[in-house]
Nucleic acid binder design. Structure first.
Lengths: 289, 289
DNA sequence: GCCCGGCGATACCGTGCGGGTATCGCCGTA
DNA sequence: TACGGCGATACCCGCACGGTATCGCCGGGC
């Protein structure tokens, strides 16, 4: 099975329409039909049920769609990692823009002070983007925040766990409180919750605004368009007009340094060592399920 | 990057010789040289350092070798799983031949008694083979034994933990004891330890015989050619001439039902449910590191 | 010192396959 | 009944992949 064939199949399986898939792939429809037919012949399995008004997946087709996506992701990651391994040495670290700034600074300082450090390139991301970059092999490591990000299939080192605070516009009645419960926030009729991107980048439905990054988030809170619940450490960068109120019953947030278990390298090992030195050895080999 | 190119590169990187790699791939050397050169051009990275008497890997080459192997394994698994998904439904379960027989029977009975069971094909394996079959996608699930097998990158459900016994030929001086320490066994001058296959199928060096399966193992013990340390449950199938003596300080062995986290299917979910019902919910999402 | 053998690279050639266009057969619908 | 959209088929072309022959380089043995 060639990756080209997998690309073709995934496109057709996602579009459920040969014509659209062919356009998306930048090719004509007939060779695509032939390629899929040949793939089915080689696998000895029908992948698609065709009828004159479209295509549906068979059981085997569902399996190959799922497996094929992971294979293509692995191929892309292999390419990216190889390409970067050929460049002058240097680590690329992904982090949410505007989050865990002190923690990041401490980590980078410790690494730079360690034995033979290499330059670290910081890649500041929109919400949820770091995890994708890490899985794609575009970065060597990422600063993730549990339980928002997932470390499934990654190795990770716990750095820090903290409670959460609610961010409210300064004038809001609840902004004067010394503590809040989550239920009080979700019950607010005037302030919706922000909508954070899902794993695939899409947004859930709902009344609140779609959030891409930290700057946009605090601006929307200041404008009275929503509330937000964020880790304690975000208090250090509150913009005027936004008040932080502790929310003791919100799930604590753990910052972890995550990396691909397959992608070991000497500089990466140094970064992990620095993380352990600074934040203590709370290694958290992440569950797969 | 096409899987064909990856196959080529892995072959060359493993052989460190274009001619041998070409022979292994069943092709001539010149097109192989060209294909690798083209791969390097496309990746924009030198993968191999050539000189007139062979080839060495660059840093990027090492990375691509590691990543490429995992990609090729994933591709092979995807093919196998898709092919099997196209066959009439049925689960394939891999288990060490002659190990955990009662446990296996209990699991299969419980599954067959559950809601809409499908036929279960039992694939009895040589030592260490189940894990490979599972990772290759040739089976849906496997009965593994920790700490001998590894569940890294797999999902697993703990079924049962037990101590170990030493198997000794009937006439041996230690066979009369009621318990043994590991050190007493390894110190034996007359009986070597068996050599079990490593993860890649090769065998470590040493004096003992190379072990492939359970039958061969107990025969060799009966013949006085070695001792062995096995889980308690192997006592139920002792052949005449073999005595089992508890070894309290041997690491306990845990039998787990393992499956690929990516390969979810309804029948597999049923099997896992049956395992949880029979053996209690000791789910052990396995560490990745 | 020379020659030989083994290495990877290069030159050149044929062909099979991947991709193109044109068209068909089928079906739902206006 | 005619049309439009679907996937399949027919046919053609070009190129990239694989083959053979050969080169340039180097190290070792006689």
């Amino acid at each position: 099975m060639e990756t080209r064939e997998l690309h073709y199949f995934v496109a057709v399986a996602e579009e459920l329409n040969f014509g659209r898939a062919a356009r998306r792939l930048g090719m004509a429809q007939p060779p695509l039909s032939r390629a899929i037919a040949q793939l089915e012949r080689r696998l000895g399995t029908v992948l698609l049920e065709r009828d004159s008004r479209g295509v549906t997946l068979t059981g085997a087709g569902h399996v190959l769609l799922r497996e094929g996506r992971t294979v293509l992701a692995a191929v892309a990651a292999a390419e990216a990692r190889t390409r970067r391994a050929g460049q002058p040495p240097g680590l690329v670290l992904a982090a949410k823009a505007g989050a865990s700034t002190e923690l990041l600074a401490a980590l980078l300082d410790a690494y730079a002070a360690g034995p033979d450090p290499v330059p670290v390139d910081l890649r500041l991301c929109r919400f949820g983007e770091q995890e994708r970059l890490l899985r794609e092999g575009a970065v060597d490591a990422a600063l993730l925040h549990l339980p928002f990000d997932s470390t499934v299939g990654l190795d990770a080192e716990e750095l820090h766990t903290e409670g959460q605070v609610a961010l409210l516009p300064a004038g809001h009645p609840l902004a004067a409180r010394t503590a809040l419960r989550l239920a009080e926030l979700t019950a607010l009729p005037d302030l919706p919750a922000p909508r954070f991107p899902r794993r695939d980048g899409s947004y859930p439905d709902g009344p609140g605004p779609e959030i891409r990054d930290h700057a946009q988030l605090s601006e929307l809170v200041a404008l009275g368009r929503m509330y937000a619940v964020l880790p304690d450490s975000s208090r250090t960068q509150l913009r005027p007009g936004v008040i932080a109120v502790p929310v003791p019953d919100a799930r604590p947030v753990t910052s972890v340094l995550a990396w691909d278990p397959v992608a070991r390298s000497r500089p990466l090992a140094g970064l992990v060592r620095a993380a352990i030195e600074v934040f203590g050895p709370n290694s958290c080999p992440s569950p797969v399920s």
